[in-house]
Amino acid sequence: MADGTLCGEDFDRNILEFMQVSDSLKDGWELQRVKNYSQQFCTFLVKRNTLRVLDVDGTTSARRLLEIKHWRMSEDVGNDERRTKEEEDKAGSVIEDVVLNQPDVQTAGVLCRFDYHIVFSSSYSVPTLYFSACHEDGKLLSLDEVWRSVPSHHQERLQNERWSFITQQEHPILGRPFFQLHPCHTADLMKNLLKTNDGTFSASHQNYLVTWLSSVGPVVGLSLPLEFAKLCKGTTPSS
């Protein structure tokens, strides 16, 4: 791993460690083992039916964002009918301040479903994140819509490689069209992330998979609970 890559055996060990934490949290990850085109068994991770509310057309108004915030608030409190009118007005005022002062909020009233797959790339010797994304009616998101759903701070950082970082590829095991976070820069990224404070490399108490996923997953709305941090000494996944 000193060069930022990962062998297949370490990938398998990493995903087993990953699944131990996931199973304890019951957060929806599944371990899949199926045959590929060569009739060889391949092990990979899947997280299905992750719902996200996206601004995929760039036209959502502050009022619509406000409606969504109110809806989320009512869901959180369980639609408690005992709240007073004063409490309702105060809560609405706070929510409105949050919405109108956060122009980069990535919510929109367009409900989409994401399925995430983590597959080992034998060509690059790194894990690769594949995902599918569709609207409520089952219509697939276009590549342009997927890009517009990326948080703005990631868009700015990736602007010069937007069409090479997220691409459409055939799933290497299932043979169906998927989106992919291209693995060509993963080794360089991981080589830097896995260095110790003194600049040397240490793989002790490190789970490569968690360190990688906590870095690239938020680009496409996939974050890990903090409990996964126990697999990575000195590394804190995004929440």
Rank of each mutant, 00 (worst) to 15 (best):
L111T: 08
T50A: 08
Q32A: 05
S202K: 02
G8N: 07
C112S: 07
Q106G: 08
S239G: 12
K69Q: 08
E96D: 14
D137R: 12
L193N: 00
H117T: 10
R64V: 08
S142V: 02
T235F: 06
F44P: 04
V53P: 03
H70Q: 14
S121T: 10
S24T: 12
K191A: 09
L226Y: 05
P172S: 00
H117A: 04
Y124W: 14
R48T: 06
Q180E: 07
T50Y: 08
S164W: 02
M73N: 07
G175L: 08
H182Q: 01
T84F: 10
W212E: 02
E170K: 15
R113C: 13
E161V: 13
L25R: 14
R157H: 08
T43S: 12
V110E: 14
M190I: 04
R176S: 12
G8T: 01
C42F: 05
T84S: 15
K195Q: 13
C232K: 00
V105S: 11
S61E: 08
S142E: 05
S38V: 12
V99E: 01
K195F: 09
D76R: 06
S142I: 00
L25S: 06
A91C: 09
G58F: 04
V34Q: 14
N49E: 14
G221R: 05
V105R: 03
E87T: 14
V98R: 12
V56M: 07
S202R: 09
L66V: 03
H135V: 05
E96M: 11
V56H: 00
D57F: 02
E227W: 02
N79V: 01
W163Y: 15
E86F: 13
T211H: 03
S93L: 09
I68K: 07
C184S: 14
D57E: 09
S125C: 14
V46N: 07
A133F: 02
